[in-house]
């Protein structure tokens, strides 16, 4: 089996004239926890749905375990998926739905369902239409994990879960990952991706703008500047490439800069400075670098 669990090459999806994703190229290796991050509407769900062939690509290539799911559905035996919005058959109870889900895979999953339901504190006897959004999300998590897939695809999985449950969920993911499960974690919340992911892909307006390990992303030459001048200076002083998140408050300018700090120092050498702070930005602030003022 291919070591690349997910692989896309110039994957593109247009809805008529509207852009979904464009020229998206990424790879996720076996055993990796890959964070896929971007704001709403950036193309995260489109990428997942195209990879799973719920919708068809316009061009490019997309593979799971080296296979195109629009041609070979058998690969889905090894895939679990938690969608961002959860919709199930309202006339079923939780256990009926999970048994129905399990019936598509060979094997007996009763013990596994019990274990996952206990872990996620899910009442199996309740009717689907009586469940809150958070509880439906728990059903989705159990349904996605019950057949112990080799690849778990998560699309905003923690929305609706309280912090305590989120923690249990992260522990469950780590436990499954240690057993060899590859996880593709799509989210617009950077902190949760930061908590468990090895690498992260940042998507903006349908295009990948950065793929990096969390560690590298933090270690890269991103610096946060806070400079207090003795008098008001030209507000366009820092209107240069690679400066983002620029905020001006009276005589104080703060921003994120990616590059050689000497470039900034040369800009301010003729100014009188009262105070200057150069520090490591938070991951959230780095993330903002890619999105400007969105």
């Amino acid at each position: 089996m291919s070591k690349k669990v997910i692989e896309t090459k110039n994957l593109t999806k247009f809805y008529g004239k509207h852009r979904g994703i464009e020229d998206l190229t990424l790879e996720v290796s076996k055993g990796e926890i890959f964070g896929f991050i971007g704001p709403n509407g950036s193309g995260k769900s489109t990428t997942i749905r195209t990879l799973l062939s719920l919708i068809h690509k316009t061009s490019g290539e997309g593979y799971l375990f080296g296979k195109d799911t629009s041609i070979d559905k058998s690969v889905l035996k090894n895939v679990g998926y938690v969608p961002s919005e959860v919709f199930y058959y309202d006339d079923m109870t939780v256990i009926e739905l999970l048994e129905y889900s399990a019936s598509f895979y060979s094997g007996n999953y009763k013990k596994r369902i019990q274990y996952l339901a206990e872990t996620m504190e899910l009442d199996l006897k309740r009717k689907i239409n009586e469940l809150s959004f958070g509880n439906k999300k728990k059903v989705a998590i159990v349904a996605a994990l019950l057949h112990s897939p080799k690849l778990l695809i998560l699309d905003e999985p923690t929305t609706g879960l309280d912090p305590l449950m989120q923690k249990k969920f992260y522990n469950l993911l780590k436990e499954e990952n240690e057993k060899g499960m590859t996880i593709f974690f799509s989210s617009h919340v950077l902190q949760e991706v930061q908590k468990i992911c090895d690498r992260v892909g940042i998507i903006k307006e349908g295009k990948i703008v950065e793929i990096s390990s969390i560690k590298t992303l933090k270690e890269e030459k991103y610096k946060k500047f806070i400079i207090e001048f003795s008098k008001k200076v030209n507000k366009n002083l820092f209107a240069i490439e690679n400066v983002s998140d620029l905020k001006i408050e009276d005589k104080t300018h703060s921003f994120i800069y990616k590059g050689d700090v000497n470039n900034i120092l040369s800009l301010i050498k003729e100014q009188t400075i009262l105070d200057i702070t150069i520090e490591e930005p938070s991951l959230e602030e780095i993330f903002m670098h890619y999105y400007g003022n969105e």
């Binding site: 719920l54 690969v75 199930y88």
Partner: peptide, 13 residues
């Protein structure tokens, strides 16, 4: 009913 996403992710054409 939006259940298509559930059904069509099963290993079945």
């Amino acid at each position: 009913d939006k259940t298509a996403e559930f059904l069509f992710l099963k290993p079945m054409t």
